[in-house]
Amino acid sequence: MTELKQDTWVVVAGSDKVLFLRNLTDHENPYLEVVGKEQQDNPPDREQGANRPGRKADTGVGQRSAMEDTDWHELAKERFAADLSDMLYQKAHAGDFDRLVLVAAPQVLGNLRGSLHKEVTDRVVAELPLNLTNHPVDEIERLVKRELDAA
């Protein structure tokens, strides 16, 4: 069982926002303090694309097919995971945390896991595939403790 010891950081990440929390107490009665938050402006894809998808000549006479357009919204989500990875590296390198619990939706966790620096992964004590970005801090405390107890 992984415990939420004092000074353990809990990072609650979504595809466009992150909450940095630090446990001020112990595992039995966690009290998470907000030490930082970031949010990326990521409007829907229809608002980010400048033009209609391109078209290309098809094999038939006078036929044309639409080409797949870039999904700017999805691309921004993947970039946010890379940006978060850089933030965590800088904070780890500065000695801001020794223990880290990552809490994120499964897809975000997967994107994040692939870009984390070894200095950060060495400090990760647990990964929880939960989407808690819109939950209040007291509920995050309760849910993280419950998941760690079950692990």
Results as ranks from 00 to 15, higher is better:
2 T>D: 07
3 E>M: 03
4 L>F: 06
7 D>M: 09
8 T>E: 09
8 T>N: 05
9 W>A: 03
11 V>W: 00
11 V>H: 01
11 V>T: 03
12 V>P: 01
12 V>D: 00
13 A>W: 01
13 A>S: 00
14 G>R: 06
17 K>Q: 12
17 K>L: 11
18 V>K: 03
21 L>A: 05
21 L>K: 00
23 N>Q: 07
23 N>L: 07
24 L>Y: 03
26 D>N: 06
27 H>F: 05
28 E>N: 13
29 N>M: 11
30 P>F: 00
31 Y>N: 14
32 L>C: 05
33 E>G: 03
36 G>V: 15
37 K>T: 09
38 E>N: 13
38 E>H: 15
39 Q>V: 07
40 Q>P: 04
41 D>Q: 07
41 D>E: 07
42 N>K: 08
42 N>L: 06
43 P>D: 04
44 P>V: 14
44 P>A: 11
45 D>L: 00
46 R>D: 14
47 E>Y: 14
47 E>M: 14
48 Q>L: 12
48 Q>T: 09
49 G>N: 14
49 G>P: 09
51 N>F: 14
52 R>M: 06
53 P>T: 04
56 K>V: 14
56 K>P: 09
57 A>C: 10
57 A>L: 15
59 T>M: 04
59 T>G: 03
60 G>F: 14
61 V>T: 06
61 V>Y: 09
63 Q>W: 14
63 Q>L: 13
66 A>K: 14
67 M>A: 12
68 E>Q: 10
73 H>Y: 08
73 H>W: 06
74 E>M: 10
74 E>Q: 12
78 E>P: 09
81 A>M: 14
81 A>G: 08
81 A>L: 15
82 A>I: 08
83 D>M: 03
84 L>A: 01
86 D>Y: 13
88 L>F: 04
88 L>C: 00
89 Y>G: 03
90 Q>E: 15
90 Q>T: 15
91 K>F: 08
92 A>N: 04
92 A>W: 01
95 G>K: 06
96 D>V: 05
97 F>N: 02
98 D>L: 12
99 R>E: 15
100 L>T: 08
100 L>N: 07
100 L>E: 05
101 V>R: 02
101 V>T: 04
105 A>V: 07
106 P>N: 02
107 Q>I: 14
108 V>E: 08
110 G>L: 03
111 N>I: 12
112 L>Q: 07
112 L>S: 02
112 L>K: 01
112 L>R: 01
114 G>M: 08
115 S>Y: 13
116 L>P: 02
117 H>D: 15
118 K>P: 14
120 V>L: 01
121 T>S: 11
122 D>I: 04
122 D>S: 06
124 V>L: 09
125 V>H: 12
126 A>G: 05
127 E>A: 01
128 L>N: 02
130 L>Q: 12
131 N>F: 12
133 T>Q: 13
134 N>K: 12
134 N>D: 15
135 H>D: 08
136 P>Q: 04
137 V>H: 03
138 D>R: 01
138 D>W: 05
138 D>I: 05
140 I>E: 02
140 I>L: 06
140 I>M: 06
141 E>G: 01
142 R>M: 11
142 R>L: 13
142 R>F: 10
143 L>K: 00
144 V>T: 04
146 R>W: 08
146 R>Q: 11
146 R>L: 11
148 L>S: 04
148 L>E: 07
149 D>C: 11
151 A>I: 05
